[in-house]
Each structure stands twice: as structure tokens, then as C-alpha cells.
Amino acid sequence: MTADIKHEGGTRRDFLQLTAGAFGVVGAASVAWPLVNSLNPAKDTLALSTTEIDLAPVQLGQSITVMWRGKPVFIRHRTPEEIQKAQDVDVSALNDKEPDSQRVQKPEWLVVVGICTHLGCVPVGQKTTEERGEYGGWFCPCHGSEYDTSGRIRKGPAPKNLAVPPYEFLTDTLIKIG
């Protein structure tokens, strides 16, 4: 009998201690969360800016770089050969399998975020005089990733294709990114 009472008392004490402990943990976590969360992108940073670009002056074969959300976006006016090359690839042999048709809205305009999917360098190849790698797209000088004329990863350590940002054609030559 005495043992039972003791046992019951013990359980009650355990329960109280556990509950108190849980309150402590919840309290500490709810104080910590706002601190941690404050480091996430702030509202002004998040305000998704959109950029409108007039493509009329961009000659066939030329590329331009525009800024969007603090990142460079590559817009390449592809030549028929470049388009052909991009479409002829055997998609199943790619690392990141995407047919060219999924990556462009109009085949002559390729729009990609100019940030290497490996560790974030800006690949070179925007100018025709720059190194473009074996596949004629872009070459990342940091660790040697090579992209093709559709911005797809073909060689090197980068795991993914260059990202395609959200964009739409407002007119034939006016494009809105974001």
C-alpha cells in the first residue's frame, strides 16, 4: 500500500516535471524562432521585382545580360545552327533531362539565369570571343562546368541545367522577366 502511494506520487511528480520541461522547451523555441527567421530574406528583398527588356537591338548570335533579383540573366538570340544543335541532342543521355522545347518559349530566344548550378559563379560565353566550352553554350571558369546552347549542363561538376526564370513576351520583342 505504502509502495503504491509512493509510486503514484512519483508518477505525478514525473508528469509535472515533464510538463514543465516541455513548457520550457516550447518557450525557448518560440523565442529562438523569430531570431532565426529574421535572417530570412526581408520584405523589401522579397518584393519580387520584374524587369522589362526590349530585345529589338539584340542581333542574331548576340547575347545580353540583365539583372533580375540581383542575379544576372542571360538572353541569347540563338542562330538557326545553335537551335538545331540544342534540339538534336539525345535527351536521355543528358544529366539533367530536359528537351530544348521545354526551356524556351520562342526557339530563337534563350532566357536563363546566368548562375552556374554548381557553386554559383557566373559562366563566361556571353561574348562570342569568350570561351564557350565544347558544347557552344557557356563555360564556368570556377570548376570547369560546360553548358550547351540550351543552357543545359553537359560536362563538369554542376548538377543541373541553368535555371529558366519566369518570363513572358509582352510583344514580339518586349520581354518581362519575373
Binding site: L39, N40, P41, A42, T45, R69, G70, K71, I115, G120
Partner: peptide
């Protein structure tokens, strides 16, 4: 990564922290 940066690329919030 975006939590570390406080944005979408290394930028002023990153430098500050």
C-alpha cells in the same frame, strides 16, 4: 542558402551578418 544570404544572392544583408 537563402537563409544564410538573407536574399537571393550574396548581398548587403549577407555582408552585415
Amino acid at each position: 542558402v537563402s537563409w544564410l544570404w538573407g536574399g537571393f544572392s550574396v548581398d548587403n544583408p549577407t555582408l552585415n551578418r
